[in-house]
């Protein structure tokens, strides 16, 4: 039978094959529509530990679902799908798929911190929103934020040369984020730099852009720095081992 009220069903759960013949009977199109069950069949018990290990997410497990955060939320007033209380619950139970459904709105948190101020259990929901956004970005569920791209470019240059060149960072950042280098305001900035800056300084910059000078004996420091950053990242992203009780 054709399903008339498809609007009531999550589109992801509707399965239809365009052409299908079963036992000689043509059941193409809506005649073969199947609806996947809406049961939640498991929790990811350790997911909250991943979020709790990220800055801002430390207290996520404290939530008792009073809804103060959602009620005070600036974004909720704009869009009732923006529901921090709900995402915190999903995080604690490890219902990742449900969180991912809201990937396009979680990051829109404006960090007004009204939720964090009002939370009776000190969950710090604003931090949880940040942690969730970062987690989704890291997992490639949402595209990289411009700020992350900038940070990476900056760090890469430091790793490589032990220093950073303003011009090169801006150039690469604009390139990676798909922004035009011939935007009016940018062209104007360049013009004025050429016009007003000392020639020696401009030559200096130009030489550095071309030759990418490195800090002397940088190799050893580079290794140590890379290792240190790697360790710090690993520490920040490693959930506590299963079973370890920590206050």
């Amino acid at each position: 039978m054709a399903i008339h009220e498809k609007t009531l069903i999550d589109p992801a759960r509707l399965m239809t094959t365009d052409s299908l013949v079963v036992d000689g009977v043509d059941v193409s199109g809506h005649w073969n529509t199947m609806i996947l069950p809406r049961y939640l069949t498991d929790y990811d018990d350790d997911f909250y530990k991943i979020i709790a290990a990220m800055p801002g997410g430390e207290n996520v497990h404290r939530c008792w679902q009073c809804g103060s955060c959602t009620n005070s939320c600036t974004m909720y007033a704009q869009n009732t799908d923006f529901n921090p209380r709900y995402w915190i619950y999903l995080t604690n139970l490890g219902l990742k798929d449900e969180i991912i459904k809201d990937k396009d709105i979680i990051w829109t948190c404006v960090s007004c911190n009204k939720c964090t101020n009002i939370c009776p259990k000190d969950v710090r929901p604003e931090g949880v929103m940040k942690a969730l956004s970062h987690w989704m970005e890291e997992q490639g569920i949402t595209p990289k934020a411009s700020s992350s791209i900038f940070d990476e470019e900056f760090l890469d240059q430091v790793y490589e040369t032990g220093r950073m060149e303003d011009g090169r960072i801006v150039y690469n950042f604009f390139k990676k984020t798909g922004q035009s280098l011939t935007q009016d305001w940018l062209v104007e900035v360049m013009k004025r730099m050429i016009k007003y800056m000392p020639v020696s300084f401009l030559m200096h910059m130009g030489l550095h852009l071309v030759f990418k000078p490195r800090t002397k004996k940088w190799e050893r420091t580079q290794q140590v720095l890379r290792e240190y950053v790697r360790e710090q990242k690993a520490a920040a992203h490693t959930p506590q081992p299963k079973g370890v009780v920590h206050a």
């Binding site: 049961y39 939640l40 069949t41 498991d42 929790y43 679902q65 709900y86 999903l90 449900e98």
Partner: peptide, 12 residues
């Protein structure tokens, strides 16, 4: 029914 997710659950 998980009344906060508004979904039926079948959890091992």
């Amino acid at each position: 029914e998980d009344t906060l997710v508004k979904r039926p659950i079948v959890i091992p």
